[in-house]
């Protein structure tokens, strides 16, 4: 008979590091990342999938971490905003082109929604052919599922185009 559990131990890879946590099965992935694994970069906004602040990548694809149970990512690989920057090989870190673009274009103000935007846009840009010029429609589709209540979308969209252009340069 299939076990019906109230608690489970979950093993997953987060930003390349193997992690494990024993959680009640109702634990949302967002809460598991923040409370059980101490990764508070993932923000929790509406907790019903509307705001997008908690977006993380599961096996490379963006998902709302508040709409996934922690037990559902057993054996999977999760990437959070803490995993966007790369080591620069000199003891420091190199920001992801999307992070760089957000700084450059003033695409954040209070910063609460930023991790979700960064993960959604990073996944969107990494999934497309960097050599192609990005269309307005692609930009809208990338940012349309996330809510920002202060900076507004003009600068966020500018950052998407900026990051796409930087990634295009890199692809040459």
């Amino acid at each position: 008979m299939t076990p019906v559990d109230a608690e489970r131990t979950v093993s997953l890879t987060v930003n390349g590091v193997p992690r494990e946590a024993t959680v009640p099965v109702r634990r949302l992935l967002s809460d598991a990342l923040r409370h059980d694994l101490g990764l508070t970069g993932t923000h929790v906004g509406c907790e019903h999938g509307v705001c997008g602040a908690c977006t993380v990548l599961v096996d490379g694809a963006p998902v709302r971490s508040c709409l996934v149970l922690a037990v559902q990512v057993d054996g999977r690989s999760v990437r959070t905003v803490e995993g966007l920057a790369r080591d620069d090989g000199r003891g420091g870190q190199l920001l992801h082109p999307v992070q760089e673009a957000f700084r450059e274009c003033h695409a954040l103000q209070c910063g609460f929604c930023t991790p979700g935007f960064l993960m959604t846009i990073a996944a969107g840009l990494e999934a497309r052919d960097a050599a192609e010029e990005i269309s307005e429609e692609e930009v809208d589709d990338m940012v349309g599922g996330n809510l920002c209540r202060c900076t507004g979308y003009a600068n966020i969209k500018k950052a998407v185009r900026h990051a796409a252009a930087a990634m295009r340069e890199d692809a040459r």
Partner: peptide, 25 residues
């Protein structure tokens, strides 16, 4: 808010899924 407590099963076959569903009502 968070979900109220529940129990969880992730059966590996359709028959097992139906078995759990009918056992739990």
């Amino acid at each position: 808010m968070k979900p109220a407590p529940f129990r969880y099963a992730d059966p590996g076959t359709l028959d097992e899924a139906l078995e759990v569903l009918s056992a739990e009502g």
